[in-house]
Amino acid sequence: MNSEEILRAFLTDDLIIEKGHLKKEEAENYKWFSHSNNKLIEVIKMAIEGETSSESPNVTEKKINKLLNQQ
């Protein structure tokens, strides 16, 4: 599975659809480089990116925290 396939696996989760982050079709056709202002999607992308690039989990967590701490 490449990063985009992993991302789609996350985005097609029922919770994403139920909470209205994406519609089902949008999730199924989501591209890695699709632009989004949704923080949950961004967090997921950052986690996948960190994992696939063998980044240290601490670094990934810091990046995510930084994203979510923006006021």
Partner: peptide
């Protein structure tokens, strides 16, 4: 409570749930 903190809590809670259910589904 600052809005960003509320939002962060929600996002990370949802991330936690999505991560677990996605792993199970995959």
């Amino acid at each position: 409570i600052p809005k960003y903190l509320e939002e962060k809590r929600t996002v990370l809670n949802e991330f936690y749930q999505v991560a677990h259910s996605t792993r199970k589904r995959v």
